[in-house]
Amino acid sequence: MVSDTRLQIHAGWLDSVKRSECEHFDCRPDPNDISLLVIHNISLPPGEFGGPYILDFFAGKLQPHIHPMFEQIYQMRVSAHLLIRRDGQIVQFVGFENRAWHAGVSSFQGRTRCNDFSIGIELEGTDNTEYSAQQYAALVRATHAIVAQYPLINLSRIVGHNDIAPGRKTDPGVSFDWGRYRQQIGFFYNS
């Protein structure tokens, strides 16, 4: 569960959150160009919450025999910087200074390869399942810490996966309340 204290970032890692370091990352071309925050959703198996499978997936340890869908994805090498569970627990997989592999083929304002300059946050959920109040609270806390550390990210540079990969991705989906989220983080910006 997430407490009410402010999160801090030290050497690219949030303090006071669970770490589940993975090998699915590499160096950013320019570590001074962290300028985009991308919000995703994930559930494994699809529509099921709370199990170990997201952590297994990002660690490259997903077992294909557990679920038919896993047979299609178990060899993929993907990751995100953060996962926010339904109960608000934050798990960090990759330090922000490094490039996580979350965006895939993507473009933002004419720039391709969004992984090069973005931070990826996965919300445990689906496009059509309402996110929990604990997830919004944790997301707001993580956003504040990220923006304080990486000021090139402003309100207009926080997007959904669907925004950078239209037609290919739909997350975080219609269930994500952008108005609620932006209202909760809006006071933090001078935009």
Rank of each mutant, 00 (worst) to 15 (best):
S106I: 06
V94S: 03
A145G: 04
A103C: 13
D26T: 14
G186D: 08
G95V: 02
G179L: 13
T112E: 11
R180N: 06
M76P: 03
P29R: 01
D4M: 11
S43F: 01
L62V: 04
P166D: 02
S118M: 11
E71G: 15
A142Q: 03
Q109E: 12
Q134D: 14
H161M: 13
L83F: 05
N115R: 07
M1S: 12
N190G: 12
G173D: 02
R77D: 14
D87G: 00
I90K: 00
D177R: 05
G160L: 07
A59W: 08
F188G: 07
V2S: 12
N32A: 14
E21W: 06
I90H: 03
Q63W: 03
Q89M: 09
Y136K: 00
R168Q: 15
L55W: 04
K18C: 06
I54E: 00
E23R: 10
Q184G: 10
V17Q: 02
I42K: 00
N41W: 09
K169E: 13
N98A: 15
R85C: 10
V38L: 01
H102L: 10
E23I: 15
D56E: 13
S3M: 04
D127L: 05
A165N: 04
P45C: 08
I34C: 05
G125S: 05
P46V: 06
Y136V: 01
A59T: 02
